[in-house]
Design a protein around this nucleic acid. Structure first.
Lengths: 185, 185
DNA sequence: ACCTGAACACCGTTCAAGT
DNA sequence: ACCTGAACACCGTTCAAGT
């Protein structure tokens, strides 16, 4: 009974290492070569587990969004859910260095079962009474708002610059509240 | 009377060429070396006119925002102005290839006179009755929303993916309207 | 003041070949 | 199935030197 040697690498270890690297050196320092080195492997080995760098970034983005989703506590009204989701996104984007840029640069891989995916994205809002189309539309707006906001906050000089003119926490909260309040009942 | 030779380059020609390059090859193809080649100059020459690549991208971002500002027709109510501004941003982001990524990657250069800058950013809304702090906060929210939305739309697979679940134009319009409607009167 | 030449220290990706 | 070695075709940036 011969054992095949345990693979040195798998997709999850790859992604975990990429997040660690991102934390240490930021997106500009996150190269395939250095990532491979951290994993004790040659750079081309990564391409067995991932299509290319944009694909890897897309997988990281997916994880960031998943973290946000998991941060939302149960709610009993869809407006409250959207508020909590917006705040969770902001926290998730703040948790990972350069998160907004990772999400912007990452390529999402088309899911095979798109209908099922749409359903699961809309699910928490549908459960609270929204129809699926409205649920997707509202969620897309909240994500856009939080993602755009994170882009500003992540830009160092822009941050310092705006920091003297407005309060980030209060203005985010005000914008999110306005957005959610404005959705037709 | 000796004439000094006309410089081969200046900041404006550099930025114009960068936009042309961006259009042809996208952000991933916009390298300092190819940009220099297009201008008939060696790469290090660019560093006389611009601090580094992030600085160049920041200047491009500034131009994109300026285009949006110029697209807003005069309005007589601040809500209408914000709506028109949001639509103008969307158009500006759609006009330049990878505009959202350029804006996210560009480093804004701190202005010397920050107070004056804040004043001019808030001016159109202050003229319509908002105080400066509210004006900046509202404008930041609209920019965040439009920028985040553009990030989704610019992501090819993400676009195709979402395109089967929602209507981009309608959902952007609905989100923008909700945001502006939700701001306290 | 403005630009070149040459160099430094890297990149992402492909692909034949190994195990 | 999973990884290495070697190579291809590039990068951004610095800096002495030229004009």
């Amino acid at each position: 009974m011969s054992r095949s040697p345990a693979p040195a690498l798998d997709r999850d270890r790859l992604i975990a290492a990429a997040f660690a690297q991102l934390e240490e050196v930021g997106l500009d320092g996150l190269s395939m070569r250095r990532l491979a080195a951290r994993l004790g492997v040659q750079a081309p080995a990564l391409y067995w587990h991932v299509e290319d760098k944009a694909d890897l970034l897309g997988l990281m983005a997916r994880d960031i969004y998943a973290v946000a989703d998991a941060l939302v506590p149960p709610q009993s009204h869809w407006r409250d859910w959207l508020l909590a989701f917006g705040r969770a996104l902001r926290r998730a984007f703040a948790t990972y260095r350069d998160a907004a840029r990772v999400c912007a640069a990452g390529r999402v891989q088309r899911d095979v079962d798109m209908a099922e995916n749409a359903r699961s994205i809309a699910e928490p809002l549908v459960a609270l009474g929204l129809d699926q189309a409205r649920a997707l539309s509202c969620k897309a707006s909240v994500i856009s708002f939080a993602l755009g906001w994170a882009s500003f906050e992540a830009n160092g000089p822009m941050h310092d610059y705006l920091d003297e003119m407005l309060n980030f926490d209060e203005s985010f909260e005000a914008g999110l509240a306005a957005l959610v309040r404005g959705f037709e009942g």
